[in-house]
Design a protein around this nucleic acid. Sequence first.
RNA 1: CGGGGCGUGGCGCAGUCUGGUAGCGCGCCUGCUUUGGGAGCAGGAAGUCGGGGGUUCGAAUCCCUCCGCCCCGACCA
Length: 576
Amino acid sequence: MRWSRLHIPTLRDDPAEAEVVSHKLLLRAGYIRQLSAGLFCYLYLAKRSLRKIERIVRQEMDAIGAQEIYTPELHPADVWKRSGRWDDIGSDMFRLKDRWGRELCLGMTEEEVVTSIAVGELRSYKQLPQIWYQIQAKFRDEPRPKAGLMRVRRFTMKDSYTFDMDSAGLDAAYAQHYKAYCRIFDRCGLDYLAVDAHSGAMGGSESCEFMVPSPAGEDWLVECQASGYKANLEKAVANPQAPASPDPAGEFVPEEFHTPGAKTIEEVSRFDDLPPSSHIKALVMVLDGDPHMVLLRGDHQLSETKLASETGCRELRPAHPEEIEGWLGVGAGFVGPVGAGKVTLLADTALKDRRNMICGANKAEFHLRNVTPGRDFQTRFVDVREVQDGDLDIVSGQPVRRVKAIEVGHIFKLGYKYSESMGLSVLDESGKAVTPIMGSYGIGIERILTGAIEQNHDDSGMVLPVSIAPFQVVVTPVNVKHDEQRETAEALHRDLCAAGVDALLDDRPLRAGAKFKDAELIGIPFRVTVGRKLSDGLVEVSDRKTGVSFDATIEEIAKSLDRRIIEAMPIAKAVR
RNA sequence: CGGGGCGUGGCGCAGUCUGGUAGCGCGCCUGCUUUGGGAGCAGGAAGUCGGGGGUUCGAAUCCCUCCGCCCCGACCA
């Protein structure tokens, strides 16, 4: 391709609306343009790069025997009603009506559609297992699209679905996907982690997220290097650090003390000289309409995700101030478990075996000291605490740390949720109807590009892995008016393309500096400069990542570049 | 949905407080010079100042209203 004929609108300045690196660079390098909040147009470079990512994904999916299919992005409401998710999913789903008033939605995931196909097609155990996948647009009406391609309302997803006769079959399909995903992310040059994850609205028993550590990420994962433990913060477990001061020994009776104006743990601890870890934090939450008081150690944070999965509730929110007043007769700052009346108590496991703690007295301006869980109030103990930096790993006892990351893939063991609700069944060897067990597996195609940019950039621009860069090589004649330089560059470019190298010819009539800057900005891994050394029969090859350059003769260049590209190509490593 | 910010040629911004008919840098076009790290000179094109309404002799500027975008929070498969 000749750069002079391409539309690659690079910008010198960072667009004002971009905050995160990948967003800035995608705009500046002329990869994307925004159409509206969370909606982006992909220009030529982005499209090329995404196509390369998709190609890797296809190769690895095909390699595990998955079959590529396509289903429409527009779904009739009917299939979603059959699984129950038409009502379960709220305003995240784009819903619309056709001219007859029939309800439709834009697909945000395809379990329902794929299962409905399976219902019509699969009859016999002989047809199983099946792995179906597609690479297709998904739509989510995000409350807040942000950070360029990171969180958008339309994105490209590789989603696959497996159907098996039994859980051993599902385990195998899940393991196959796990391995394929590792190979995909390795080959895309990502530094990633596979973490234990929460299944959320997808349902199912087990799930694993593929996370790319990056400060720009929106998810947290928890990792212990000593034991290799890795989990999404929503699911992570660890032992809390010991309380900052030991509980007072002895059998004391709860006793009120005056704490005027002290509503937060911080403020109350000024009255009692005890650290937050000696306090009980009481949060009034509404779970499916019912009042609950969730008790945590004063220095701990509630994980709403854990609370939801521990209680199995569908809807969860903090109580409004008026509700708290109504149920407990006092404002939020002074509520506590002792004498909480009809409000259901739930305590975090970190409060088990603690004694003589501080908590709200359910009386304005008063707190209680010497409160011992299990003696002064009865409750169920559940793990609803968000893991903190420095907590101790369950297995190794070593500290864990929290890391920000971008989710690029997620694999789920779905179980029977969709096959059962939608009536999928096949006959087994004995002629008995059996409900197949399903799995579902997703990859965010654009997030691979985003993650790669976040992890690979410098002050000059993107430094893309050669496997997903829009071009592998750019051939740059320093001065196109110089006939010999121009002709040599054109010939080189032709030879490279003929040799299977994905090369771009920068034949624009610009000064060399401007061309170098642009090539660096858009992240082409190698540059061949045809310039003054041509009189000695030499051209210069420079490596975008290291900045290192070397001279090569024109005769050798195709071969030596080919070798460099192969060496630089990220390869699938051993499965982690 | 709550809080904050912004909206002026393609991009980045000034001008708004204090009303007087739009400016700077980059980019773009033409010519000449230049040509290995975002060239120089000369000439030029390009703006419903987000939309609508109002106040005023006069509105980018003041008032009302609507829209859009970004950030924080809530939410999130």
